[in-house]
Design a protein around this nucleic acid. Structure first.
Lengths: 227, 227
DNA sequence: ATATAAAACGAGCGCTCGCTCTTTTTTGAA
DNA sequence: TTCAAAAAAGAGCGAGCGCTCGTTTTATAT
């Protein structure tokens, strides 16, 4: 029931849906008026950007490469963003947007601490499974956007960590968890969650599916924390 | 006794020592003959490269930036490497070199499984503490070197993971650890170790020192694995 | 069928990049 | 003090970058 397939039904994180959100947030700079056309081409642009950037990095990707691979001309590209940096910001912004959408959705805050922790971790794994290339991009390229990008990344990191920390603190206060330092425990759980998308290829090669990963994670974290 | 300060006495990972190793490995391309001069300037070059690259990325760093910040002319720089890619390779290669040096050193393989696991994790934390910017650089820029760099990174990742996996498997076979999947356990421990250098600023801000981090890690992993 | 607006096109602009090469400075043995 | 070798210097080169803009193609309404 609380599996990846039900997650996919609950949240629409398809390329089309994500690009529709991007169009909304960047109406001011996108010069194409017909939403249908704009979303379709944004999808082509961003899909290609994620592939090329996750191969060699965003900076090495030239806009001529992007033009060639996406099938849109240089001029057409610049109908959708006013600078290469804006393209980067579109993707980063949508990642932050999706994190907020998924991790603050209701029902995460119900049940006993371990169940809530499980739900939070599962959501994180499922979210990054659905938007793998987006998260890899954000993780690797946040610093390329200078102070603003770095600050955005740090803020998002600390925010997710705080969600974990609060659940752990609750577990300790109700006596279900050992009296560990909740901040440190959260700080150590976060990188395990991130590993799912940063090293996705490794898990794929070993045949580990999202739900199997969540199961192992819950087992390990449970033993780490339970009194 | 088994602390960061004793580690520092055991392994010389000073900038000078590391650059001397780089000079040895790249004698063929480095045109400066006097070792003393070469090591001193390599140190300036690499120190500056790490600072500039970890700020905005290796590709965005121009060699004119590097020249200006390091105080060496364009011509002088090209006495130490024959291309920007070679400079990247020098740093990546020295990271791999140091991993091999530190993690295969004797005495890691003695004692009971948890002690050996502790020793391995401590060494990893201390190594990445001593060479923080090097590891951040390698982590972020490995893909910028195409297939060769990616392969190097994956190989190094799996090699370290295998060390963890073998100790965990031993622990399970001798009945000291719970019967978990050793590969998955190792796969989850690795990102916690990497977090120490990837998010170093966060831990610094919270006043967490290397030995404190190791202590928390051992506590958590111990509860994760002990029968 | 025609007019008009929307969208896509792609050669070309100015500029900065990685890299080279001649010249100048520094070094150290005689 | 001299002078040849070693090292550093930095202007200059062609290539390729991000980005623009006059033109052409496509879509839509009359």
């Amino acid at each position: 029931m609380d599996s990846y397939s039900t997650f996919q039904q609950e949240f629409d994180l398809s390329m089309e849906a994500l690009c529709r959100r991007i169009l909304e947030r960047h109406q001011a700079t996108i010069r194409v008026r017909k939403a249908e056309t704009a979303v379709a081409n944004l999808a082509r642009i961003i899909e290609t950007t994620l592939v090329l950037s996750n191969r060699n990095g965003f900076h090495p990707m030239s806009l001529r490469d992007l033009s060639e691979q996406s099938g849109l001309s240089m001029g057409a590209l610049y109908s959708y963003f006013d600078s290469k940096d804006t393209l980067l910001l579109m993707i980063l912004g949508q990642v932050v947007d999706a994190i907020g959408l998924v991790l603050t959705a209701p029902d995460v805050a119900a049940g006993d601490p371990l169940a809530r922790l499980r739900a939070l971790m599962a959501r994180h794994v499922y979210l990054t499974e659905a938007m793998g290339p987006w998260f890899v991009f954000a993780f690797m390229e946040a610093k390329a956007f200078g102070k603003q990008g770095r600050a955005m990344a740090v803020e998002s990191e600390l925010w997710t960590e705080a969600l974990l920390r609060d659940v752990i603190a609750d577990g300790i206060n109700t006596g279900r968890f050992r009296p560990v330092d909740p901040t440190m425990a959260a700080a150590l759980i976060k990188p395990m969650l991130q590993d799912w998308y940063v090293k996705r290829a490794k898990y794929r090669k070993r045949g580990v599916e999202p739900d199997a990963f969540v199961a192992v994670l819950v087992d390990m974290v449970g033993n780490m924390l339970l009194a």
